[in-house]
Amino acid sequence: MNALALYGRYAMTSLRAQAQYPAATLMLTAGHCAATAIEILGVFALFDRFGPVGGWTFGEAALFYALVNITFSLADLLTRGFEVFGTDFVRTGAFDRVLLRPRAAALQLAGHEVRLSRLGRFVQAFAVLVLASHLVPIDWDAAAVATALWAVAGGVALFGGILILQATLAFWTVESLEIAHVLTYGGVQAAQYPLNIYAAWFRRLLTFGVPLACVTYYPALAILNRPDPLGAPGWLLPIAPVAGFAFLGLSLLAWRAGMARYASTGS
C-alpha cells in the first residue's frame, strides 16, 4: 500500500475512533469554534474605535482573517501528531513504537490523528468569510475561488512545515515547546491583519522568512482585485502561495536531521 493510501487508512481509523464519542467531539468542536472566534472581536473592536487603517476597512480585514484562519484550521486538523510529538511521543517513549514500524516516521505521525474538533476554527472563519463577502463585497468568480483554494493549499503546507519544525525541536528538548506558537498562533494573529500596516522589517520577515504573506496577503489582494499598496507586481500575487510548499520541503530536511540525532541520543 503506497504512502498516500496508507495515510487515507490512518485518517479513516482516526475518524472512526472519534465517531465513537459523537457528543464529546461535537462539544469540543463547538468549544474550539467559540474560543477561536474571540480574535475577530479584537479586530472588530479596533476597527470600530479607530476606523479604517492602511486603506482597509473592517470588511476587507475580515477577508484576511478568514483566509488565514481557514488555512490554519485545516493544517491544525491534519498535523496533530506533530503538535503533540514532544509530549506524547518522545517523552512517553511511544516514538520508539513508531520507529519499529517499516514506514517513514513523518507519515505515521501525520496519520496519528485527524482531529475533527479543529473544524471549530474552520466554522467560525467560514462565517467571517461570508460576512466579509457581504461587507466588501467580494465577487466569487471561478478565478477568485481557484486562487483561494490554491492559497489555502499553500498555507496548509506552510503551517504543516512549521508544525514539523516544532516537532523537530522536540528531538533537542522535550520540555514545553510554546516557542513554536510564535509561528503558528502568532503567525495566524499576524496574518489576520493586512500586511501593509506593519513595519518594513516585519513585512520582509513575513514574506521571505516565514512566508505567511505569500499564502494569505498576496492571494487575498488578487481575490479583492486590488494592487499591492506596497508595489508587489500583479503577476506575483496569485503564484505567491508556492512559497508554502518550499517551506514544507525545508522543514522536512530539518526533520531528517532531528531523526538522526534521536538515533544517537535516544532521549
Binding site: A5, L6, R9, R101, P102, Q108
Partner: peptide
C-alpha cells in the same frame, strides 16, 4: 481486528 487490518497495510 481493525488494528490488525491497519498493521497489515503498514507492513505491506
Amino acid at each position: 481486528i481493525d488494528g490488525f487490518d491497519l498493521l497489515a497495510d503498514i507492513y505491506r
